[in-house]
Nucleic acid binder design. Structure first.
Lengths: 103, 103
DNA sequence: TCGATGTATCGATGAGCGTCTATGCGAGTG
DNA sequence: CACTCGCATAGACGCTCATCGATACATCGA
């Protein structure tokens, strides 16, 4: 119920949605390797400053939606599929309404 | 992509999540009838003022998540199952990552 | 060891949002 | 018709958040 608000708030932002889309299907990258996306790519992709990108990444990681792995000087990001599956399930419940009015 | 932000922002709030939960499985109501929930019920359920409740309802309706039907003096609210199914599908995509890095 | 580079943190600022009180509108009820 | 009641709107206040520049930290290469 309430724990849904945290990850949903993290997703409910155009910038972070774009980040998730890119993590889901990455395109060109300066130092990505196929098993993760380098953080420096987002700076150019989103047209935002580096601190802002770092801020959004922290939110996504704290919400459990994205996994961050530090490899040497870079940080590689990847989606956390289980988190999205859980949220999707919770929302799908509203699509199958029991609609019984108790007294 | 971006059209997801609007409904997600509407859901990503503890108060509105509680409203959705109640619409999904209503309990006691002063004037509900089984095919919708009277707006006056939320005021007491949420412990918020009437204008605040009206504000949240407007957000949910504008996001296409809730349907409002005016019957006489009251307004009855109901979930819009298709909207939640669509959002759940979009989020479920992130749980099934293609993970192909194009150049 | 020193400089370069990627990232995180700090402080400030401006916009957006949730909440309230006060008020207006519409529809029943006496 | 006048009054009541449910709901919507307007304006204001406080808080959160997205964003930036400046700076600190960490790691790699020369």
């Amino acid at each position: 119920m309430d724990d849904l608000a945290l990850p949903l708030k993290a997703i409910a932002d155009p910038v972070r949605l774009q980040i998730l889309e890119f993590l889901h299907a990455p395109v060109a990258s300066c130092c990505s390797r196929g098993d993760g996306v380098c953080g420096c790519d987002f700076e150019q992709l989103l047209g935002l400053s580096q601190p802002t990108v770092s801020h959004h990444m922290k939110l996504l990681v704290d919400a459990g939606l994205v996994r961050a792995e530090k490899r040497g000087r870079w940080v590689y990001y990847d989606l956390e599929p289980a988190a999205f599956a859980a949220i999707a399930d919770r929302l799908a419940r509203f699509a199958h309404a029991p609609r019984r009015v108790a007294t």
